[in-house]
Design a protein around this nucleic acid. Structure first.
Lengths: 190, 190
DNA sequence: TTCATTAATTGACATTTGTCACACGTTTTC
DNA sequence: GAAAACGTGTGACAAATGTCAATTAATGAA
């Protein structure tokens, strides 16, 4: 068992209600996607939830000027879902594209809600995941909002060094909310 | 019954499991707080969840330079909680201050988790609230990140006019992530 | 009402970051 | 392996927003 958040919560689920765990984990299918492919297209309704087993994916939206705004990178163990579309079942304003060849497991939205409704423990599993993702979103908001370009870079350097090692600067700069030229200049002087 | 999100979800809870609803809603206490007072202080652990009945509160953090960064304003019907601290039980990095005299109801964290554990329907209530708040956070992230100062102002003007009507510009500018002088200049030319 | 405090406006200027253009090196593809 | 596509680095300049200081307007307390 891995030590990422989803795995930890799955382990809790298994301890709490083995049958729920079995039914839930049995509902996942495996799949894979190559670099450059789109896993969840823009404007399509998202009806599956993915968990990355290997590789890297990026989640992004389009700004009004057409440029890309990257909301998150997903590595091994991370969830992959166009969240708002998944919940509301409306066309997604965000898309997911594969940066490095991915293997994943996935489960249908229908099954998620069915099992959350059937098993209290599954409902708890999702509630706890949401708590964590909400806290992360909060933190990212503060980060993007209150740090200068340099501070952002240093923060990534310190807290998420794997982002620097494994992501092209083009993508990373978008994630930091700065232009690639700016990132390039910051790197030059630090 | 009101038509805000929390009320809607409470109504769903009542329909789904009347006993859960009764026990849950019976666990709330009423209270009030005057303009200028701090409801949840910085660096204190947050162990209650509040729902605003009247008035306005602001939720904020301190940036590294000491200035204030406002994360949200809460009006009638909105939740009021230092979320990360509430979940992790660590000292809060955000605080809540009253902008206009507030009446509220509140419930202890302990009771929230106890009832979520006891009643599947209460767990569902929280999971669904979290879904909505997560979507809001996502949207705010995009808003802050991809709009210019002018676009932000126009967006608020259109989508949240009550913010403009009821909040001092000083507070609003912090919420928009711009300086008060900048907001003042934008208003002048639109 | 009046004085004191706080909020909003405005101007001049500084700073940060973005934009555009192009060079250079590295992958990918046929 | 050559051509094309892509990613990165760099310079000159532009634009948006911030900073500081001074003034005016609004608000609240005695």
């Amino acid at each position: 068992m891995e030590n990422d958040i989803v795995s930890q919560k799955l382990e809790l689920l298994r301890k709490k209600d083995e049958q729920a765990f079995n039914e839930f984990s049995g509902a996942f299918e495996t799949g894979s996607c190559n670099k450059g492919e789109i896993l969840i297209p823009m404007y399509k309704t998202c009806d599956r939830l993915y968990i990355v087993q290997s590789g890297i994916a990026k989640q992004f939206r389009h700004k009004e000027d057409g440029s890309e705004y990257i909301t998150w990178f997903s590595f091994k163990g991370d969830l992959l879902v166009a969240f708002t579309s998944f919940v509301t079942q409306e066309p997604s304003k965000e898309a997911i594209k594969i940066i490095e060849d991915c293997e994943y497991i996935s489960i249908s939205r229908e099954m998620c809600y069915e099992l959350a409704s059937k098993y209290h423990a599954v409902e708890t599993f999702f509630r706890e995941l949401l708590e964590i993702y909400y806290m992360q979103s909060d933190e990212r908001l503060f980060f993007l909002q209150s740090f200068t370009a340099k501070q952002k870079y240093n923060h990534i350097l310190k807290e998420m060094p794997h982002f620097l090692q494994r992501l092209p600067q083009k993508e990373l700069s978008s994630f930091l909310g700065i232009k690639r030229e700016t990132l390039s200049r910051i790197r030059k002087y630090s």
